[in-house]
Design a protein around this nucleic acid. Structure first.
Lengths: 148, 148
DNA sequence: GACATCGTTGCAACTGAGTTGCAAAGTTTA
DNA sequence: TAAACTTTGCAACTCAGTTGCAACGATGTC
């Protein structure tokens, strides 16, 4: 049983060929992927399948979505501590994401936690999205602007 | 000359009837509006006009866009300090936004600044989006779950 | 093994947000 | 008033994502 099959079964999702493939893709990229990005990588898989598969994964808390705003929602597999079927960002391991404006990739700063601020009275906070944008090291080097 | 006309002229945008109307709407709501929300409020104005007007406003730094992820991009007029044609979030007055998952409205916590965290080496940060989600006071009260 | 059942697949058709083409209307300048 | 330019408003388009539906495949029962 492959790692992907294991993760799927663990979350109560039947490990079909497409699901294994899609999960494998997201895991291998090691960064949050949008539906369109998955579509591009997996040319052979119909977008309706990707759409439905991602919905299934979400329902089973196998991944969570992050928003980098610039285009579409991206999906990230929870590598953090899973307990009670929750993935990291549904628990307390909120981390910062970074979206490169040049190459369009989104990165996880897993070591960097989101600082909690004081909110006005009466607001109930359920989740927080901390998204920084700019240039990733590679694009920063390419553009010849190498200072930090 | 109305306040709206003044703002438009100040930013080098010719104050036409539609532009005044759209700006007035955004100002009056006092919270970031999405294109669709503006469309709903201003039934008489065609969405192509709203689309083009918002593009014009953006080009002239009259407003900036924030992303609450859940649906579309929202626009907010800069009430902060404007200098050099930059609006607040393009300068250093980054503040926290809050999106209510029940009523779908987005609020500005203008008093709450985004805390800056340490990023991994090599990443150039240009902008930051700090978006909290949950229930606003009104929806929180309605749902009978009134604790903070 | 044959049959019924149920979830999954893959195509096509749809939806909804947003943009663009284009001609008519309005504004500005000489 | 005429020429040049901008804005308007409709319709047509684009693009991402979802849904309808029939075919397919896996699983379970007799």
């Amino acid at each position: 049983m492959s790692n992907e099959e294991h993760i799927l079964t663990e979350h109560g999702v039947k490990p079909t060929a497409n699901r294994i493939l899609i999960l494998k893709t997201i895991l291998e990229e090691e960064r949050p992927l949008s539906m369109t990005e998955i579509e591009t990588i997996l040319e052979t898989v119909d977008k309706s399948i990707i759409s439905r598969t991602l919905a299934t994964f979400r329902e089973h808390h196998l991944l969570h979505d992050i928003e980098d705003g610039s285009d579409s929602v991206r999906y990230e597999v929870c590598h953090g501590h899973h307990h009670d079927g929750l993935c990291c960002d549904e628990g307390n391991d909120l981390h910062v994401h970074f979206h490169c404006e040049a190459c369009g990739r989104t990165f996880c700063f897993e070591k960097t936690h989101i600082p909690i601020v004081n909110y006005p009275e009466g607001f109930q906070i359920h989740s927080i999205n901390y998204m920084a944008k700019g240039l990733c090291p590679e694009c920063s080097a390419k553009s010849g602007n190498n200072d930090k």
